[in-house]
């Protein structure tokens, strides 16, 4: 059972990814896919999903919660899952799915794995893959309960929607009773930071916790000044410490960037950061730890201490510039 994210009457793009994940599961374990969508006004979205993917959809309309909220979501989904008894419940690994999935699993006594980015067969058992230890390794997990609740990493599983001639799946409409909630939704505030300095820059010098102190940010600034139109960005840790402003944060809770060149200095490569810089064309990573996960995301890997190495890059660029000048002079 795929649980489509609630998005104010719209179909959220993650729904397609979850159906794709369901199809991958189907290839390994026979079974039917059904989509469930819960919210205040979900009927139109339900019909669109049924059409697009040719799958049966259950639309659970619940008056009173037009916006996602953990408490009613957990209550309504728990009831539906207990009625349908699916083998797998697939949630998006987003601020919504990551919040409700573990609680629903706990309520129904299901095994739960959050942040799944792969499925394989291992020792004859179905295994879900996810990152461990800050992304340094992937763990393969197998679940023994009749229902397994999984939250699926965004941006990994993709399919094209079923071609138009496919018959739309049937849509079942249900009403859920509104439960008195202990939590009230008050409103949403947009981020309010302007990240255009880093989203527009063709070259980004990005610093992580490895920079060690706010004074050392100057090293990155100097390197950026040496490179044409380069901007300095950072990880969440660096922004949380106040070493850079939040308008410089790259990652899921900051900006997504796609520069021609991304130089990652002292960044471990946590998935929350990497998801914001995957679009970079060329990536250079400098880190003291040869096993830092950022190296898997880099074209060029350099195992060095950034404090010592960044000045060496400047010098080397300087030497190269001198060399070029000499070469021209000779000619």
């Amino acid at each position: 059972m795929v649980i489509a994210p609630c998005a104010n009457g719209r179909v959220h793009p993650e729904t397609d990814e979850l159906v794709a994940f369901g199809r991958r599961l189907q290839a390994l374990r026979a079974g039917a896919i059904g989509v469930c969508i819960v919210g205040g006004d979900v009927n139109v979205a339900a019909r669109e999903i049924a059409q697009r993917h040719s799958v049966p959809v259950t639309a659970i309309q619940a008056a009173g919660f037009s916006h996602y909220l953990s408490e009613p979501y957990v209550a309504v989904l728990t009831e539906e899952i207990e009625a349908v008894k699916p083998a797998f419940v697939c949630a998006p690994h987003t601020s919504q799915g990551w919040e409700w999935a573990p609680a629903v699993a706990a309520r129904i006594g299901a095994g739960c794995i959050c942040g799944v980015d792969g499925i394989t067969e291992c020792q004859g058992r179905l295994c879900f893959q996810k990152e461990l230890y800050g992304g340094k390794v992937k763990g393969l997990f197998s679940v023994s309960t009749t229902t397994t609740v999984i939250s699926v990493m965004p941006g990994i599983f993709t399919i094209k929607p079923a071609p138009p001639p496919c018959p739309p799946g049937p849509v079942t409409y249900k009403e859920a009773a509104w439960r008195p909630a202990q939590t009230r939704y008050v409103g949403t505030r947009q981020a309010g930071v302007d990240a255009s300095d880093i989203t527009a820059a063709p070259i980004i010098v990005a610093v992580g916790n490895g920079i060690g102190s706010p004074e050392n940010i100057a090293l990155a600034n100097r390197l950026a000044r040496r490179l044409p139109k380069a901007a300095v960005a950072g990880t969440r840790v660096v922004c949380d410490r106040g070493w850079l402003g939040y308008d410089r944060q790259v990652g899921i809770s900051g900006a997504s960037v796609a520069p021609a060149l991304y130089i990652a200095c002292g960044i471990s490569g946590a998935s929350q950061h990497v998801m914001g810089m995957r679009g970079a064309r060329f990536v250079i990573a400098i880190n003291t730890d040869p096993r830092a996960p950022i190296f898997n995301e880099a074209d060029i890997c350099i195992v060095e201490d950034i404090i010592r190495f960044i000045p060496l890059i400047e010098e080397a660029c300087g030497r190269l510039a001198e060399g070029t000048k000499e070469a021209i002079d000779v000619r």
Partner: peptide, 16 residues
Amino acid sequence: WVERLGLMAPPRMRAS
């Protein structure tokens, strides 16, 4: 309920 069957090195996404 959930058992870890093994570990894998993460795949390289770029030239590295």
